[in-house]
Amino acid sequence: MRLGIVVTDDRCAPHAVGLLRAAGARDWPTRCFLTDRGVFLLKDPEFRRLLEEGATHFSLCELSIERYGGDGVSVEGLEDRIIVGGQYQNAELVHNSDRVLVL
């Protein structure tokens, strides 16, 4: 099972982290795309641990980073772990996943 998770809201952080961990425990190839307020997950310690583990392919919407950069959202230090792009990365996630969850 190739799982794609699109996170649009930071209130879904516990669900996103739990789903990503569960998919990893099953050795499922997993992709995660952050957009809109989902980029606030970059400030969540549990989510950042997932980034450091490197088991999931992560990407995010550059426009969302620009929009919320004043609120302390940054990819500084994560450039080698996350692709900063646009909706193409979202489309790629959908194309390369058997199932997609939007949170």
Rank of each mutant, 00 (worst) to 15 (best):
L42A: 05
H15V: 15
D44S: 06
G72V: 04
E66M: 09
T30D: 05
D27R: 08
L50K: 05
V94D: 00
E46D: 14
H95P: 00
V73W: 04
G24R: 09
L34I: 12
A91L: 01
L3T: 15
R49M: 02
E53Q: 05
R21Q: 15
I83R: 03
Y88A: 03
A55G: 03
E52R: 00
E62A: 14
V17H: 10
D9E: 12
P14C: 07
A23G: 14
G70W: 15
D27S: 13
C32H: 05
I83N: 06
C61P: 07
L60I: 09
Q87T: 12
L51Q: 01
A23I: 15
G24T: 14
P29V: 13
P45K: 00
E62G: 14
K43S: 12
P45I: 02
L42F: 04
S74P: 03
G86K: 01
R67F: 14
A23C: 14
V94G: 00
T35L: 11
L93R: 01
R48L: 09
R67Q: 14
G85H: 03
F40V: 06
H15A: 15
L51R: 03
Q89H: 02
L101K: 06
D9Y: 08
G38N: 04
V94W: 04
E46W: 08
R48A: 06
G24Y: 08
V39R: 00
E66K: 13
I65P: 09
R49A: 06
A25C: 11
T8S: 08
S59P: 09
D71H: 13
N90R: 06
E46I: 12
R31Q: 14
A22N: 13
D80Q: 03
G18Y: 11
C12D: 12
A91R: 03
A22V: 13
C12G: 10
G18W: 11
P29A: 12
R99S: 12
D44C: 03
L63E: 09
C61K: 05
G70C: 14
L34G: 01
A25T: 13
E76M: 02
R99K: 14
L20Y: 14
W28H: 15
S74M: 04
G4S: 11
D98F: 11
H57K: 07
F58R: 00
I65G: 07
D98I: 05
F58S: 04
V17E: 10
S64K: 08
A23T: 15
T35Y: 04
E46V: 13
H95Q: 02
V94R: 08
C12W: 15
F47Q: 03
D80I: 03
L3I: 15
H95V: 05
T35R: 01
H95T: 02
A23N: 13
I5H: 05
I83P: 11
V7M: 02
N90E: 08
Y88N: 00
R49N: 07
A25L: 15
R2G: 10
C12E: 12
N96L: 03
S59A: 13
E66D: 11
D80E: 06
